[in-house]
Amino acid sequence: MKHQIRVKVNAETHEAQVSSELTLLEFLRDTLGLTGTKMGCGNGECGACTVLLSGAPVRSCLILAVEADGQEILTVEGLARGDRLHPLQEAFLEKGAVQCGFCTPGMLLAAKALVDRQPDPDLKDVKEALGGHLCRCTGYESIFEAILAHPR
């Protein structure tokens, strides 16, 4: 079964025909070619597929594309302004909070949702916001530091 959907992704409006069973993650990666959002576990456990849906972080592997109809989505590709990286991206670079990079898009979007809501989070807030994000390289410390130190 096909559905006509209209979504705004990184401030750009897209209209598309999607199958019922297409996930939002597959729509972003395979239909729109926005491969910054990663497919990790596919069960909502790892956080790699996190995007912002109407401003709040969600697991795009557990949402159907058709469910997102009419809503606004932000992916990692939408964080930078032209050549200017988002302050969180700058902070991740500064603190070396990236190794293989697979978890980074999800971490960045979860962090963005946090600092949008709470511009000056403490370590407990950061750990709570990233509680559902796995990183197998960094040991997390550099990621916490980056978010705590990001320029406001």
Partner: peptide
């Protein structure tokens, strides 16, 4: 329950 992203949905 779960984490922030799960609790949102």
């Amino acid at each position: 329950v779960g984490c922030c992203e799960i609790r949102r949905r």
